[in-house]
Structures are given as structure tokens and as C-alpha cells.
Amino acid sequence: MTQPSETRSQTNRRTGNFLLEVNDLQKGFGGRAVLRGVSLSVPRGSLFTVLGPSGAGKSVLLKCLANIEEPDGGQVSFEGRTLDFRDASSRGSFLRRCSFLFQGNALFDSLTAFRNVSLPLEQTTSLGRGEIRARAVEALEQLELGDYADHYPGMLSGGMQKRLALARAIVTRPEMVFFDEPTAGLDPLRRNAVFAMIAKYQALVGFTALIVTHDIVEALVASDTVALLHQGEICFYGTPDEFASSPHPVVQSFRDSPAALRSTLDGLRRGEAASEQS
């Protein structure tokens, strides 16, 4: 994995350091604040992970960035330009340069794998049919789905659906890809495979990745920048190494959750044993 870091540093040198900057983003639902002023800076070319327990507001943060939800306050700037969420052309040009990978893949179940991948090109670009076909086939083959072009998403396995979703995300050659819990509900081996896949295609295609997840082990290994979202606020921002050694209490409890579980279980077992003895 030396190649990606090389390309990253190259791009950083060329065009400033941060691709996406979030400043004091706020969002609430029915009086309940979910995001209480989130600020983040995502370096260009990085694999950026937002960690956090369930319910910390990770998905909402991502939806605000991807224009599915409108934030109540705060700013998002892309390449140093502030986005106006209410201005259709500003939104449109931002969305055309980003892709979004949904937790449930959000594949179009009435379209074949090929049509799923070619749809964004058909609808948002003015490419010719041949060019669209070539690029869609290329994206499918990059994700080893070339033989499944005529299959409907429902006929594919879970892992293949995930890959198809990624193929659809990268076919537009985005500068940034948002991942919403890409490993949710997968076993550890598959989780590894998903992170490996993201890192591999990031190196191949060269996008900036922002991943929201609670799979701490894989995230710390794969990503180069980590943020921890806790109760709607960012309480840690840094490299995985810094995360591993951070004294912040929330970071510690999140980091040490397996150990905490072990001690809890040990306590329970000891208690059971004691009650059995008595």
C-alpha cells in the first residue's frame, strides 16, 4: 500500500490540502438536536473515517453532506467554495463530482446491473451511447462483475450487490465518494474485504473517500484520518496512531469497548459461578 500514499501526497501538493470542509454543521429533528456544530476537514485523496457509536448522528451527517437532508445551520465547502444547498446549480455541480454509497446499497431493483451502472452517465452527462457502454463495462469489470451485467440486483449475493453499488458510484469518476456504513451487518472477513475493496479502488481510480462506520478495528487499519462523532459533536480528529494513544475519555471507552465487554462478561460469569456454588 505504498502507491496510494504517493498519489495522495502528489495531489495534495498540486491543489491545496482540503477537498471538503465542514464548519459548525447543525441539524435537528423535531426539536432534538442530532448534530450540534460538527466541523471537519477532509484532506484531498485521503481515506477519511468518521467513527461513532450507533445513534451518534453519523448517517445524518452524511445525508447533510450529500444533500438528502438540508442542514439547519453551518457551512460545507467543497474545494474552498461554500455550497449553497438551496441553489440547484450549485448543488448539481457538487453532486456531479461526488458519489454516495448507501448502507442498503439503494440499487435500482428494476434495472439490470449494467443499467444500474450506466444510468448516472445517461442522465447526468452528454456522453454518447458507445462511450457510456464502454465506461459502464469498464466499471463492472473493475469490480469483477463483468459476467453479471444482465443480472438484476435481486439475483446477486450481498457482497456482489455491494460491489455493484461501488461500481455505480465510481462510474462517474467522482472526486469524492461517501460511504454510509459500508460494512454494516457483515461478518469480519467480509468487513475486511469491503475495506480492502475501497482502498484498492481508491488507489485505482483516485477518489477521496469519507467513510462512516462503527467498525473500529478495520477503520483504524485502513484509513489515514479518523474523526470520532459522539452525541452530535466531533470529540476526536487525527491519524489512527493518534487515535490509538488518545487520552480522551470517549475515545478510550470506544477504543477499549472489547476489553470492557470482556470484563463485564467475566463479572457476570463470576457472579453466575458464585450463585451456582451457593
Binding site: 444533500n67 438528502i68 442498503g104 439503494a106 440499487l107 431493483d109 444510468l119 447526468t124
Partner: peptide, 16 residues
């Protein structure tokens, strides 16, 4: 169902 499975949100995020 397309709303439910986020297919409509997916269209939105693609700029469609």
C-alpha cells in the same frame, strides 16, 4: 418501495 430502499435518495445524490 423505491423511497423506502433509498433508491429515490440515490437518484438525488447522483444529481438526477
Amino acid at each position: 418501495i423505491q423511497r423506502n430502499t433509498e433508491q429515490i435518495a440515490a437518484l438525488d445524490t447522483m444529481g438526477i
